[in-house]
Amino acid sequence: MSMANIAAPTIAVSGRDSTGPYGPKPRRMFSRRNIFLYGTLFVVAAYYLLPLYVMVVTSLKGMPEIRLGNIFSPPLEITFEPWVKAWSTACTGLNCDGLSRGFWNSVRITVPSVILSIAIASVNGYALANWRFKGADLFFTILIVGAFIPYQVMIYPIVIVLREIGLYGTIWGLVLVHSIFGMPILTLLFRNYFSSMPEELFRAARVDGAGFWGIYLRIMLPMSLPIFVVAIILQVTGIWNDFLFGVIYTKPDTYPMTVQLNNIVNSVQGVKEYNVNMAATLITGLVPLIVYFISGKLFVRGIAAGAVKG
């Protein structure tokens, strides 16, 4: 039975050919494929960078130049005045002390929120992974399902709870809210991470007589630095960027930066100062951008894990 002759070669060379193709297949750098590939990527990249560029150039122009020129042209005369104004004298309603107040409010909200939410979730995730108790899975399931419930359904009951405990309108109230809504994803993150650590490690520590907190502090914590970094990235950007909770649970004095920014830019009174607006927008975006560019691959890991948060 022979099937060898169907794909018979066209050129039969009996001896050794020393002139034919040799080594790597030559590839032109500007092949049609490459031009299409890199061309598309560069165009798309330019599109994605455009808003950032527009923000920067607009924030460096004076108002007369903005009125005359076009938004894509680079500034003829660079001025930092809009930045100064956005930071220290821009007005929201009666207050005219700029974005700096919102910035410090955001810092005062973000730092404790990140610490509190991660502390609660990591201990909780550890308990769920290593000290399973009856009923734990039920509560955990409710928590995870809760992550998909639109916040709108829960915001008013939380208003009532905060009012009862006297935290409504305060920074601590908002910290609590961020801890509540950060809990599902963070707990999931930590639970999965601790579950993936070798069980033997945990058993060995128990045989050595370490207890719940001892194992957590001396064994689990030092070994889980990467997941803490991922959680911090996730929470810092998430909380800094929040608007809805800020506008609901704080008062004008304690508004986070995003809320204040929106009030500055979208205020109906007065003459619109687009350069100041863009400077303010850029300043607000700076913190998450810095976190993003520094964290690189860890950020990707964080959003892959935290994407469920929506």
Partner: peptide
Amino acid sequence: RNLNAKIASIPMILNALVIFLGGTIWTIVY
């Protein structure tokens, strides 16, 4: 039994029952 784990889970349990479950039901009822 396993008391520490249960203490550590109190925030989760409160959150799941009071806020996520309770809050949702409250809103639906009202």
